[in-house]
Amino acid sequence: MTYPTDRKYTKEHEWITADGTIGITNHAQESLGDIVFVDLPKVGAEIVAGKPFGTVESVKAVSDLFAPVSGTLTGVNESLATAPEQVNKDAHASWIVKVKVKDPAELNALLSAADYEKFVSEEAGH
């Protein structure tokens, strides 16, 4: 899998673009399996870097979504309510929320595509 270089990544397996669009990585969707439910806050909600802001559920398990950065939600992908499987089909094209980033330095400090790929392969090597 090659990870798009137009965005940053977290060790919690989320991605975020420069304009604050957030999703989960292909590695995360693969690990979760069939995604059947996405539970998200409403537009206007404040999210805090490193803190859970929503959940993704597969048939088997519930997983928290962690905020890659702090900010205010400006968009929530409503289509995931009825078609959460989009995330399985193309995790890097299926955005989950959009956020107005509070501090761009937080975003810049996240992992590059190459670093994330390395992190994933090291994790698999455990």
Partner: peptide
């Protein structure tokens, strides 16, 4: 459980 924890690591 976080997304990270959903990724199985078999150690013991």
């Amino acid at each position: 459980m976080s997304v990270a924890e959903a990724i199985p690591v078999v150690s013991k």
